[in-house]
């Protein structure tokens, strides 16, 4: 136990994402309401996005814009240290991943609307009963 605590504190952000991810996964598996499942799905995806964002972070680094790159004092004269700038690539990747997750969420919401229009409910157990009423599968 004594070894575990410093480990958690040192990398507390990753532990947070793991917890978030598990909350999302739990909601997707255990919740009965389809909208709650959708929210769980979004939490799950967000946890991964946060994970990526935090792997680009460096202590004491600034945003990845080179100082005085366009003329001004010291342009091109001082050497650029990669350690001074946070890594922009994971962030850029996550822009794409956010777009993907928004699109997925949109499609899923549209499907939920279709299901609600057809069955007037979004509870899974009620849906299962309605499906049983429709009769055997075609």
């Amino acid at each position: 136990m004594t070894d575990l605590l410093p480990l958690i504190v040192a990398k507390y952000n990753y532990w947070l994402y793991v917890i978030l991810m598990m909350i999302g996964l739990y909601a997707m598996i255990a919740k009965n309401n389809l909208i709650k499942k959708l929210v769980g799905m979004n939490i799950f995806q967000t946890a991964i996005i946060l994970f990526y964002v935090s792997i680009g972070y460096k202590t004491d680094a600034t945003i990845p814009i080179i100082q005085n790159a366009h003329g001004g004092q010291g342009a091109h004269s001082a050497a650029i240290h990669a350690a001074d700038y946070i890594n922009p690539l994971p962030h850029v990747l996550m822009l794409t991943a956010i777009v993907v997750s928004v699109a997925t969420f949109g499609v899923a919401m549209a499907l939920a609307v279709r299901i609600y229009q057809r069955y007037q409910t979004l509870e899974e157990d009620e849906l299962r009963m309605r499906l049983a009423d429709i009769g055997p599968e075609k």
């Binding site: 996964l25 997707m28 799905m41 799950f44 997925t104 499907l111 057809r118 499906l131």
Partner: peptide, 25 residues
């Protein structure tokens, strides 16, 4: 996902939504 929902009117959207959940995971 979109295509599956275009299919069977009764079961298509539900099958598609389950596919969304698992596909996203």
């Amino acid at each position: 996902y979109a295509m599956v929902a275009l299919g069977d009117r009764d079961r298509g959207p539900l099958a598609s939504l389950n596919y969304v959940f698992i596909g996203v995971i």
